Amino acid sequence: TRVETATETAWISLVTALHLVLGLSAVLGLLLLRWQFPAHYRRLRHALW
Rank of each mutant, 00 (worst) to 15 (best):
L33E: 02
H40E: 08
H19Q: 01
L31Y: 14
L30G: 13
T7S: 15
S13W: 15
V15A: 07
G29A: 11
L20C: 12
V21H: 07
L14E: 03
L20F: 11
Y41W: 15
L24Y: 03
R43L: 07
G23T: 09
T5V: 03
E4Q: 14
H40W: 10
R34C: 05
W11L: 04
L31D: 04
H46T: 12
H40L: 12
T7C: 01
V3G: 02
W11I: 10
F37Y: 12
L20T: 06
W35Q: 15
A17D: 04
A6F: 10
I12A: 09
L20W: 01
E8Y: 01
Y41F: 15
F37C: 15
H19L: 12
F37N: 11
Q36V: 13
V21G: 11
R42Q: 14
T1A: 15
S13T: 14
P38M: 11
T5M: 03
L14S: 04
L31W: 13
G23A: 13
R43N: 11
E4F: 09
V21S: 12
W49L: 05
S13V: 15
L32C: 06
T5L: 02
E4L: 07
L33K: 12
L18N: 02
H19P: 02
V3T: 03
L24H: 01
L24D: 05
L24P: 07
S13H: 05
H46Q: 06
R43D: 04
T9C: 09
A47P: 04
P38S: 13
E4Y: 11
V27L: 10
T16V: 13
Q36G: 13
A17I: 10
R2T: 15
W11H: 05
I12C: 06
A10K: 08
L33V: 10
A26Y: 07
L18P: 10
R2A: 13
V27R: 02
L32P: 08
L48R: 06
L28K: 02
T7Y: 11
A17V: 08
V15N: 13
W11Y: 14
L30Y: 09
R34L: 06
W35Y: 15
A47R: 12
T7G: 05
Q36C: 10
A47G: 03
I12R: 02
H19M: 12
L32I: 06
L33P: 05
A39H: 11
T16L: 09
I12N: 00
A26R: 02
L24Q: 04
H46S: 10
L18W: 04
A39R: 12
A10E: 13
R45D: 03
R2Y: 10
L31F: 11
E4T: 12
A26E: 07
A6D: 01
L32V: 14
S13D: 06
A6I: 05
L33I: 05
L18R: 05
R42S: 13
A26V: 11
E8Q: 01
W35V: 14
L32F: 07
S13M: 08
A17N: 05
A17T: 07
L18K: 00
L32A: 14
Q36R: 15
S13C: 14
H46E: 07
V21Q: 02
T16N: 06
H40Q: 11
V3D: 03
L44A: 13
L20V: 13
H40C: 15
Y41I: 14
L28H: 00
F37I: 01
R42K: 10
L32Y: 08
Y41Q: 07
G29N: 03
T9K: 13
A6M: 11
S13I: 12
V15H: 00
V27P: 02
W35L: 15
R43W: 10
E8G: 03
T16H: 02
L30N: 01
A26K: 03
R42V: 09
L48I: 10
L44R: 04
S25L: 08
V21A: 15
S25H: 07
V21F: 14
A17M: 12
T1L: 12
L31Q: 10
W11K: 01
W11F: 13
P38Q: 13
I12K: 07
L44T: 08
V15I: 12
A6T: 10
A10P: 03
Q36F: 00
H19I: 15
L30V: 11
S13K: 04
R45W: 07
T5E: 04
L33R: 08
H19D: 09
L18V: 10
T5F: 02
L24F: 12
A17F: 13
W49G: 09
L33A: 07
G23L: 15
A6V: 02
R34Y: 06
P38G: 10
L31T: 11
I12W: 05
G29C: 15
Y41A: 15
R34I: 08
L31N: 07
G29Y: 00
T1V: 13
F37D: 09
L28Y: 08
T5Y: 06
L32K: 01
A17Y: 05
A39L: 11
G29V: 14
L31E: 00
V3W: 01
L48E: 10
V15S: 04
T16I: 14
A39N: 13
V3N: 06
A47H: 11
L24C: 08
R42W: 08
L48W: 12
S25Q: 09
L44N: 05
A39W: 03
H46Y: 08
L32S: 09
T1M: 13
A10Y: 01
A26S: 09
P38C: 07
R45Y: 11
L48C: 07
V27F: 12
W35G: 08
V27Y: 12
H40F: 13
E4M: 04
T7F: 03
L28E: 07
H46L: 06
H46W: 09
T9R: 08
L20Q: 05
L22F: 04
L44S: 04
L18D: 00
L24N: 05
L24M: 09
R43P: 02
L20A: 12
P38N: 14
H46G: 09
W11C: 00
W11E: 07
T1N: 07
A26C: 06
E8H: 01
E8L: 01
L28I: 04
A39F: 11
R2I: 13
V27E: 01
L44H: 02
V15Y: 06
Y41K: 06
T5C: 06
A39C: 05
R34F: 03
T1K: 08
T16D: 06
Q36N: 13
L28M: 15
A6G: 14
H40R: 06
A26D: 05
L30H: 01
Y41H: 07
W11V: 10
A10H: 03
A6Y: 00
I12L: 09
L14N: 01
Y41T: 13
A26I: 08
R2F: 15
H40M: 12
T7I: 06
A17L: 09
P38F: 13
R2P: 11
Q36S: 12
Q36I: 13
L14T: 00
G29T: 12
E4I: 07
T7R: 04
E8C: 02
